[in-house]
Write a protein that binds this DNA or RNA. Structure first.
Length: 854
RNA sequence: GCCGGGAUGGCGGAAUCGGUAGACGCAGCGGACUCAAAAUCCGCCGCCGCAAGGUGUGAGGGUUCGAGUCCCUCUCCCGGCACCA
């Protein structure tokens, strides 16, 4: 055994051992409890970043822990391999996206292997391979048959940088989720998936996801945005025909307070009015420009214009003017709203601005209505009661809504309706490097699905995009084909699928790598995923799409699970310090942390920083997520090369709990390395010391302490609080070092090694073998604390007088209440602080404390 | 504005049911070893105080023998959504 800790040798040997044993091959086995542990698969961008290392270390700690607990564990890995960076790299380097992607996969796979993750590589998949994406195509055709997938032309979000359409979920603050470019509106035909059909189930089933973080569920619920209300119509005459202007409201109880109707600029009625009214036309034009701008909509002034049209109030029969308002969204509800200035703050502001009437229709006891100043209570639906509302006077919110909805229904002008914010998922992307949509356009037959037996529609892998449109349009070998129906020449669809389609079901494909079916019976064994781990940034996008996809697959009879992920852990971001300096031209120059020298005062507080290169001061910008542009990233590769995988893993687990952000710290990494070196040194010493050492069953303080720490660590593991598990391991080593020569050293060290094995598997594997505990620590059992080791004759209780801690008192373990009281009162400390007064009351908390109240 | 989550030493963070606040680590300080430095080892380390002791978990109030933890009011921070009718 080497005296020095040499991570490189130790880690290579351990990895070779696992590989030769196929230690991580997962085989379905109905006799064992299964545990499917999945981390979100990476996009093969080139190399791993710290976020990956953190994500996969968390998954690996869980995987190895469950393996040692006797579970049948599956931890697969794959590649989210379609996507735009490959095309951008292709334009820059003139390399086909396929080649760039496969090269990156090869490199990143090596990196993952060097970190020692317990991955079953036999199940590896890449979404850009035809044997994977053929099933995207196959399921798309099934959805088309079921009417879940359909084509429509509508105004979409257009990312001008990526030159493609984005789904609503992919627009964040008016910008593309990937590029950050301001999204434009365009009218483009495309294919949509009917996720709204599942809106109710997607919302309701959130309640069944007890293993999901509350905030993710809240975000999804907000996104789905269910509301209960009334949809009804205002009749009007157009060219002698009666037409209906539909609106949606959640406040039907205020219907008698309607003084105008507002429609969106894109509403057909606005367009109709614009034909004869140039003011309306001008206003619509103005709105178009504004909606393209990302715009702080919230702070935007409410503006509108009268259309000159009136409609009829469906209950009173009175005429109601129609306005175009820039605050009405075409994309929600009907694109038109009833306006009740007296009870809606927006309508109030609008009415004040344009001098429209304000008519009170609800009242709250004790509040006085004024048309001059908006008051909170005017929108109160809990306490509001109808007034000035004829037959509805006196009704509360629910009574009024029910009565009004019933009356509207009787007139066939509306009724109660549930409304969702969620919209169908547009999946067409005008890009090359994605899964082809399996459709053929024939002049005679129209759009024809590719027959199943012709799948997959294979994407040519040798294209080199040049940045000018979709390269598939320049590929006659792809483009031209025979119509499957009539056999005449036809054209293939060149749009590809949103890459979120690929990631919506990969977890099911790991289970069943079948050439003939999308999934097979093995999925029934492994699904659902027991633990899913990934970044919070996917709270809505990927996690909502996956849930939807799972339900579609279930309804098509492919799988039996309702939800893909039973438990979800959203790991925090990795942060680092940011240093910058203003350049002469007013720009900002960033410095990497290793180019910086920190200045400290005598107390060790950081007072400033200078650049190593020129010794001139730089500005400290605080901490932020590691990013290329801020130059504050740390490359995992250099970390592994310098310290080894175990140090990287240990630091990641120790620095903070998995759900919280993690602040990078070079000295923290040093600390982790220091610990592993001490662990190795202790093992080395113990090996020579313990040869022929007899095992003892005598009680010892060391043994008790280690078992106590183990008990705590096992509890923390259950909470996935790995930072305190790492801390327990450190405490164990501290205790072992202080108790060198204790008869229980070997037993205690074996507990430490097993506890630590999921976090730092290589060094624990080596020490386990070197000390002769066994051949493979991975196949030993997980340690449990022993009652006999925890037992003690005498216990120490905290001593308090009047609730203030004044010392401690030792009593026999079996001492009863009165004995403890007596022992406590006679202590020196108690006597001193009781100041001769009698005890009024004594509180004894078993095994914890005694509090004497005087 | 609405929803969710926070606030604990110089820093990252512990504290399961209300029961010794600050575990563990980092940084810092002192010492040993060394020609010296690094590494390593030993000790100290919330604040005030020489000490006894006092005080202390964003602020204020409350419940309790006892509150970081429970209740009320407020401030600030982070994340999400947002003219959603």
């Amino acid at each position: 055994m080497q005296e020095k800790y040499t991570p490189r040798d130790i880690e290579q040997a351990a990895q070779a051992h696992w590989q030769s044993r196929h230690s991580f091959r997962a085989v379905e086995d109905a006799t064992k409890p299964k545990y499917y542990c999945l981390s979100m698969f990476p996009y093969p961008s080139g190399k791993l970043h710290m976020g990956h290392v953190r994500n996969y270390t968390i998954g690996d700690v869980l995987t190895r822990h469950y393996m040692m607990r006797g579970y049948n564990v599956l931890q697969p890995m794959g590649w989210d391999a379609f996507g735009l960076p490959a095309e951008n790299a292709a334009i820059q380097n003139r390399v086909p996206p396929a080649q760039w992607t496969y090269d990156n996969i090869a490199y990143m796979k090596k990196q993952l292997q060097s970190l020692g993750f317990a991955i079953d590589w036999e199940r590896e998949l890449a979404t850009c391979k035809p044997d994977y994406y053929r099933w995207n195509q196959w399921l798309f055709l099934r959805m088309l048959e079921a009417g879940i997938a359909y084509k429509k032309t509508q105004v979409v979000n257009w990312d001008p940088v990526d030159q493609t359409v984005l789904a609503n979920e992919q627009v964040i603050d008016g910008r593309g989720w990937r590029t950050g470019a301001i999204v434009e509106k365009r009218e483009i035909p495309g294919y949509y998936l009917g996720i709204t059909r599942y809106a109710d189930e997607l919302l309701a089933a959130l309640d069944t996801l007890s293993g999901w973080p509350e905030r993710v569920k809240t975000m999804q619920a907000n996104w789905i945005g269910k509301s209960h209300g009334v949809r009804f119509a205002f009749p009007y005459a157009l060219n002698g025909e009666q037409e209906l202007l539909w609106v949606y409201t959640t406040r039907a109880d205020t219907i008698m307070g309607v003084t105008f109707v507002a429609v969106a600029a894109e509403h057909p009625l606005a367009a109709h009015a614009a034909k004869t009214n140039p003011q309306v036309a001008a206003f619509i034009e103005k709105c178009k420009c504004i909606s393209v701008m990302e715009a702080d909509l919230a702070t935007m002034e409410k503006e509108g214009v009268y259309t000159g049209l009136t409609v009829t109030h469906p209950l009173t029969g009175e005429p109601v003017p129609v306005w175009v308002g820039n605050y009405v969204l075409m994309g929600y509800g009907e694109g038109a709203v009833m306006a009740v200035p007296a009870h809606d703050e927006r309508d109030f502001g609008f009415a004040k601005k344009y001098g429209l009437p304000i008519k009170q229709s609800i009242a709250v006891a004790g509040e006085k209505f004024s048309a001059d100043q908006w008051q909170e209570w005017q929108a109160d639906k809990q306490n509001g009661v109808c007034v000035n509302s004829g037959k509805y006077d006196g009704l509360n919110y629910q009574q009024a809504v029910d009565a009004i909805a019933a009356d509207l229904k009787a007139k066939q002008l509306g009724g109660q309706q549930v409304q969702f914010r969620l919209r169908d998922w547009g999946i067409s992307r005008q890009r090359y490097w994605g899964c082809p949509i399996p459709l053929i356009h024939c002049d005679a037959c129209g759009t024809v699905p590719v027959p199943d037996e012709h799948l997959p529609v294979t994407l040519p892998e040798d294209c080199v995009p040049d940045g000018s449109g979709n390269p598939l349009l320049k590929r006659p070998d792809f483009l031209n084909c025979a119509c499957p129906q009539c056999g005449k020449p036809a054209r293939r669809e060149t749009d590809t699928m949103d890459t979120f389609v690929d990631s919506s079901w990969y977890y099911a494909r790991y289970c069943s790598n079948d050439a003939k079916a999308m999934v097979d019976a093995r999925a029934g064994y492994w699904l659902p995923v027991d633990q899913y781990i990934g970044g919070i940034e996917h709270a809505i996008l990927h996690l909502l799409y996956s849930r939807f996809w799972t339900k579609v697959m279930r309804d098509l009879g492919l799988i039996k699970t309702d939800e893909p992920f039973a438990n979800l852990l959203t790991q925090g971001m990795v942060l680092n310090h940011i240093f910058s300096r203003r350049t002469g031209k007013g720009g900002i120059e960033y410095f990497a942390p290793d180019e910086i020298e920190l200045l400290r005062d005598e107390g060790g507080h950081i007072t400033g920083a200078t650049a190593k290169a020129d010794r001139q001061p730089v500005d400290y910008q605080g901490i932020g997520t590691m990013s290329k542009s801020k130059r504050n990233g740390v490359d995992p590769q250099s970390l592994i090369e310098q310290y080894g995988a175990d140090t990287a893993r240990f630091f990641m687990m120790f620095a903070s709990p998995p759900e919280q952000t993690l602040e990078w710290s070079d000295s923290g990494v040093d600390g982790a390395y220091r610990f592993l070196r001490r662990l190795w040194t202790f093992g080395h010493g113990l090996r020579s010391r313990s040869a022929g050492m007899a095992t003892s069953t005598a009680a010892s303080p060391l043994r008790r302490e280690v078992h106590l720490l183990l008990k705590q660590a096992n509890y923390d593991l259950g909470k996935m609080q790995f930072n305190t598990v790492a801390s327990a391991a450190m405490k164990m080593l501290n205790a072992l070092e202080k108790a060198a020569g204790d008869p229980h050293e070997r037993e205690c060290f074996s507990i430490l090694l097993r506890l630590l094995a999921p976090v730092t598997p290589h060094v624990c594997h080596a020490l386990w073998q070197e000390l002769g505990y066994g051949d493979d620590i991975l196949t030993t059992s997980w340690p449990e604390p022993l009652a006999e080791a925890l037992a003690q004759d005498e216990i120490e209780l905290v001593l308090q007088v009047n609730g203030k801690t004044r010392g401690s008192v030792r009593v026999p373990a079996e001492a009863d209440r009165s004995a403890i009281e007596a022992a406590a009162i006679t202590t020196e400390a108690a006597q001193k602080f009781m100041e001769g007064k009698p005890a009024k009351k004594v509180i004894v908390v078993p095994n914890r404390l005694v509090n004497i109240v005087v």
